[in-house]
C-alpha cells in the first residue's frame, strides 16, 4: 500500500448530548519492529504511534498505539457534541508524517 490513506465514517448531524459512533481506518502496514527480513535483520518499526480526535478543539480521544495494533488500524469510539462544528482526526507516523482528516457536523 502506497500512502497512508485515512477514512472516517461519522454522521452528518447529531443531537446535542447524544453519543454517536465514529469509525476510522487508515491504510498503514504497522511494521511492528519484531519481524526479520530475508537476511535475518530486524525490520525497523514503522507504525502509526498516536491517533487523536478533537471536536472544535476539545479532545474526544487520544490514543497511543504499539505494533500490537493490526495493520490498517481500525479505531471506533463515541463522541458527543453540544454545537455544530468540526471533528478533526490526526494520525502520527513514526517517520514523522502526520495524516489528517476532518468532518463537519451539524446539530440535529
Amino acid at each position: 500500500m502506497a500512502d497512508a490513506k485515512p477514512r472516517v465514517k461519522a454522521p452528518a448531524s447529531a443531537a446535542a448530548g447524544e453519543p454517536f459512533a465514529i469509525k476510522t481506518l487508515i491504510s498503514h502496514e504497522m511494521e511492528s519492529g519484531q519481524r526479520k527480513d530475508g537476511d535475518g535483520n530486524l525490520i525497523p518499526q514503522k507504525i502509526i504511534n498516536r491517533f487523536t480526535c478533537d471536536f472544535n478543539g476539545t479532545n474526544v480521544v487520544d490514543m497511543t498505539l504499539s505494533g500490537g495494533v493490526s495493520a490498517n488500524p481500525y479505531i471506533e469510539f463515541d463522541a458527543m457534541i453540544d454545537q455544530a462544528g468540526e471533528l478533526k482526526f490526526t494520525w502520527y507516523d513514526d517517520d514523522g508524517s502526520v495524516y489528517e482528516d476532518a468532518k463537519t457536523i451539524d446539530l440535529a
Binding site: M1, A2, K5, R7, K9, K23, L25, S27, N72, Y74
Partner: peptide
C-alpha cells in the same frame, strides 16, 4: 464496506 479492509484498495 467501512470495516472491509479491501475497500482502501478499491479507493486506490
Amino acid at each position: 464496506d467501512f470495516e472491509n479492509p479491501a475497500m482502501s484498495a478499491v479507493d486506490e
